[in-house]
Design a protein around this nucleic acid. Sequence first.
DNA 1: ATCTTAAAAGGACATTTGTCCCACAAAGAA
DNA 2: TTCTTTGTGGGACAAATGTCCTTTTAAGAT
Lengths: 198, 198
Amino acid sequence: MIRVNCTFLDYIVKLKASGSNDSITEYEAVVGEKIISQKTNVQSIYLIKNGLAKCYLTEDTGNDFIQEFFGAGEVFGEIELITNEISFCTIEALAPTTYFKIPKKTFNQLLKEDAVFNTLLLQLMASKIKYTALRHSYNQSHAIEKKLRKLLNELPNLFQKISKNDIANYLGITVRSLNRVLPTLDTTPTLHQGSSSQ
Amino acid sequence: MIRVNCTFLDYIVKLKASGSNDSITEYEAVVGEKIISQKTNVQSIYLIKNGLAKCYLTEDTGNDFIQEFFGAGEVFGEIELITNEISFCTIEALAPTTYFKIPKKTFNQLLKEDAVFNTLLLQLMASKIKYTALRHSYNQSHAIEKKLRKLLNELPNLFQKISKNDIANYLGITVRSLNRVLPTLDTTPTLHQGSSSQ
DNA sequence: ATCTTAAAAGGACATTTGTCCCACAAAGAA
DNA sequence: TTCTTTGTGGGACAAATGTCCTTTTAAGAT
């Protein structure tokens, strides 16, 4: 549930370190900071170096639906650059997060001239498609309890890292429903400690 | 809800017509035929020339969840080729469907040597990611009635083209629930006529 | 024509999930 | 400290959705 991509991160770190590309810059986001806001223009692709962020869509109903949690190496903004459209989701830091920013021009150059970069991006996107397909399918056809068990299996310290509200929004349920199911699981989850627990 | 991609189809048709690539072959699937089966090896990418197919995942519960309906120009198999993994979904014809098959070797060659093809594939994948993100988000945060209205808005003759069972599996609900909501809509849907109605 | 099968329609009931509350605890601001 | 805000926990009830089952209709097979 927390997506990472070391291969891609390593490649970009090396690229930056090689000095051949000084347009790649590094930033830091504090907890709660929005790195990308829904329905705004995107002029770079972003890459998380370290930290944790949530990627979510706000619906007309006011509900937030969390697409995914992003950890080290995860990339975003590439969809907007490729389709030339405004962002369809918001990326918000859940912990202090450092990230790289690669401007559109550099991104297009790399895509064209760097075969390795091109392949890495294809793999990254293919992986996103597959992962979300599997996740949403599972979500549609299983009860809350099973979804939660699966989640806890993937990330045992889930409740230390992510607030209940965010977990509920990730599962597409309410916090009340989440709380109702929790006691039925063997595991005894501890409380959410905020970003101090990372 | 029925995805199409004329640009990509045109490009492949021209590529094939130019004679420069005789490894691209054409096939026809009858109604109910599975073009790709879940958990099998994939050695080509596929491209629908004409017809209609459903792309679905079968869960351990036995439930089918329909990811998307594919119309002319839609591509599949590319994820499996890029990630080098077995297929995670089944593609099944809902109407007589003609499609192209591009072998893995040719696909990789095109990706490397044909910049236009490379870009088209990136766009296609970006579009898939965005579309499914929006759809699943909407599905998670809206009641059945709204989901159905949205669908009927996109495709007024929905019920002529697709069976209720498939529509239910696309929305992640049961046929019973679908039938319950139908009378509350102004529209009076007619019955599913099978493939004869196209 | 008759039989068989698959899709459709919907009643009755159970279960799941959401909504609306209120209460409590922790963290940060004044 | 005291106040305020935010996350948490859960009771009571309402609404949405699923399960199970029966009937009807339409299409295709023999």
